[in-house]
Design a protein around this nucleic acid. Structure first.
Lengths: 279, 279
DNA sequence: ATCACTTACGGGTGACGTAAAAATC
DNA sequence: GATTTTTACGTCACCCGTAAGTGAT
């Protein structure tokens, strides 16, 4: 079996054409490489070079050895990278969700339960999450429905209720609840990236326009100085806090309530068990 | 970059389950392996083991590293084998022929021209030779016809004339030549492995029987004590010498003369040039 | 007590550097 | 004379072994 450093010396010689050039590249001296080449010939048991007095050139055997050695060195580097990457993957809990709600709600909980790991949560379309679950990009995904699959564990983890979020001096503010139908036609301020809620509000209030804001602060500012309603949920209220002079009026339709299901491969259940059982 | 001996230690540990067992298998001591494992963890930069006080077990990272290391070690061994094999191939001139004639005729010539190489010649079916030429099993092949191929060099190298070989006291012996038609019906003693001649004599003398002998000596012995004709050619006469009380009568048919073509890949032409030019 | 791993220390191989020679351009 | 390879020699690193220690069975 030939040691890695010898293979490195060999490919460096091939790359730099002369022992001297290679030695400079490797931070070694020429005699060292002369010895390495000699040792390589000894280990291979066949001549690898045409020895000129002033020149050393790889022969046919040597060129073959170089190409094979290059491959081995490449794999050696890949090995280190792969193992390090694998280690990192083991130490980071990657969670994907179709909506921001569960992330707002559970991110602090996950951070507490898995304090020894890096927790990365992100919002993605359902199809991305499901393929990502199976190819181990995500240890857990959160969908709006259970997943029928043999090698998957699935548990309902959260319910989110949609509210209209309006100024407290409007007639709407006094109602105990409203329906999508009643609100259809109003224009809403909405936050970007509301995921699964987007198709629901758009389909149930087809005559409304949705004025998408990219961040919470601008939305809140605009909301304060206008009569435009926006949305809130039990989760966002808890996360951002209630704004002054605004009240939440729940929608009455069943579609305004969304149940979230946490899903993981059965192989990852042990890892996530303590959180599943805490719900 | 991780040295090969460390990878060997790692896979030996995985194979033998404990450091002690692995150390015995490698003819080393346990402390040596302890150090190697420590060094591996240091080089990978991630933990590879669950360190019990009395036990050392590979963790998930370690198992991945083992599987990758096994692959690298396998390639390392393959590399040495391949280079040695390549060297051997360079030093042996492998020649295949569809008939024994060219080998009898040229084997001594090749041995003289390529005294620094081992010359291996063998008789094989045409299809085997052609595929073998392209996958470098043969540096040269000899067929009964030229080969139409862009990356091939082809040269006629020999003509073989078929004779009937009969006792000198038979009427046949006096004729200047005979035709296949005249001889059809005679039974012949033939030597095994006459290659391309086989289909020719069988098709042109369908009423003859061919009594195949496995070696020259038995054939000669039987021939001496019987009136059965056999075959000879300009080449076999030269090779084996003429037998007493037997004469060669040439066939008159054009098919009784066979031209042989030596064929090599153009990449091998330089090597074979001196012989090609000597013809 | 035995077994398995770890730690500490010493030794010898061998990988590397320095110096100098030989050879080619 | 400059550059490259090779040889000779000295040094130091490091790989390995021995011995002793710790903890588990």
């Amino acid at each position: 079996m030939i040691e890695t450093y010898l293979l490195e010396h060999l490919v460096a010689f091939h790359k730099h054409k002369t022992l001297s050039a290679a030695s400079r590249a490797l931070n070694l001296t020429q005699p060292t490489l002369t010895r390495s080449m000699k040792k390589l010939e000894e280990l291979f048991g066949v001549p690898l070079f045409d020895h000129g007095k002033r020149s050393l050139r790889l022969n046919s055997n040597g060129l073959l050895a170089v190409s094979l050695a290059e491959n081995i060195l490449e794999l050696n580097e890949q090995m280190v990278r792969q193992v390090r990457n694998h280690d990192l993957n083991q130490r980071t809990l990657r969670i994907g969700s179709v909506a921001p709600g569960p992330i707002m709600e559970f991110a602090p909980v996950w951070a507490r339960f898995y304090a020894n790991m890096a927790v990365a949560s992100e919002q993605r379309p359902e199809a991305t999450l499901i393929t990502g679950l199976h190819n181990h990009t995500y240890q857990m995904i959160i969908l709006t429905h259970p997943l029928e699959d043999e090698d998957v564990y699935c548990q309902c983890c959260l319910t989110e209720q949609l509210y209209v979020y309006v100024a407290d001096d409007t007639p709407l503010a006094l109602k105990p609840s409203v329906s999508f139908e009643e609100m259809d036609g109003y224009n809403f301020l909405v936050l970007e990236g509301i995921g699964s809620w987007d198709p629901i509000v758009r389909s149930h209030m087809p005559n409304s326009r949705f004025l998408v804001q990219s961040d919470e602060l601008t939305l809140a500012t605009i909301a304060q100085s206008s009569s435009l309603p926006s949305f809130s949920t039990n989760i966002t209220l808890n996360f951002f806090g209630k704004q002054p002079h605004r009240v939440s009026v729940p929608f009455s339709d069943p579609e305004s309530s969304m149940r979230f299901y946490a899903i993981c491969l059965k192989g990852n259940y042990e890892l996530l068990k303590k959180w599943f059982q805490s719900i």
